[in-house]
């Protein structure tokens, strides 16, 4: 079935072909429809599933967009390069890191204290309970991803980029997102495509651990 489609539509990617043939089968044969649908969903595994529900309705469009707070002001694990507007001298960690509740309270002890969502932060701060943010970008355990070399490489190849633009390469325009969601597949093909375009290493052991 896939082969006949491939002959007819040679310019479609294998994934598109799977989706199309899957849809065809669903429309055609009702009995095996659930099975085919599962196969199609399986083949599409790892793709974007929409923004997860967070414990507090934190709005990046307000903070990063309207207020114009730099990414690395809150995500302090981001390494400092020349492009970073606020050179905080953060320690370089593999992850960009989620800010601590204390960091929210820098501003929210005085800003928008009446908002019900900010009240939740205050409650977490006063009771010492961590906020259980739901992770949006998660790579598999066998991937050794470190932000540092990627940010440095992008800063070198795009000297005019701001930090937000560097981050947007993989994370999308977070400054316009009310709820943050994953915009790129961030699977191996996605990583390798970018590595090929930028003459980055393609040795397995560079990413796989």
């Amino acid at each position: 079935m896939l082969d006949s489609f491939r002959a007819l539509l040679p310019r479609l990617s294998p994934k598109q072909l799977i989706v199309i043939s899957g849809l065809g089968a669903v429309l055609g044969g009702g009995a095996i429809a659930p099975v085919i649908l599962l196969i199609v969903l399986g083949a599409m595994g790892g793709t974007i599933t929409g923004p997860p529900e967070q414990p507090i309705a934190f709005d990046h469009a307000v903070h990063a967009g309207k207020a114009g707070i730099a990414c690395e002001f809150c995500h302090r694990g981001i390494p400092v390069v020349e492009n970073t507007a606020t050179a905080l001298g953060a320690p370089v960690s593999a992850a960009a890191t989620i800010p601590s509740v204390e960091q929210c309270m820098f501003c929210h002890s005085v800003v928008a204290t009446e908002s019900p969502e900010v009240q939740k932060i205050r409650a977490a701060w006063e009771t010492g309970t961590p906020i259980e943010w739901v992770r949006v970008h998660r790579l598999p355990d066998h991937v050794d991803f470190v932000h540092d070399p990627h940010i440095r490489a992008l800063a070198e190849t795009h000297p005019s980029f701001t930090t937000a633009q560097i981050c947007a390469t993989c994370h999308g325009d977070v400054a316009s997102m009310t709820e943050v969601e994953q915009v790129r597949a961030l699977n191996m093909g996605d990583c390798q495509g970018c590595h090929r375009e930028n003459s980055a290493p393609l040795d397995c052991a560079v990413c796989h651990k």
Partner: peptide
């Protein structure tokens, strides 16, 4: 398993 440019014999587990 393959030889990487650093002379290491690498095992790629998920392969």
């Amino acid at each position: 398993t393959y030889h990487n440019p650093d002379g290491l014999n690498v095992q790629v587990y998920n392969r």
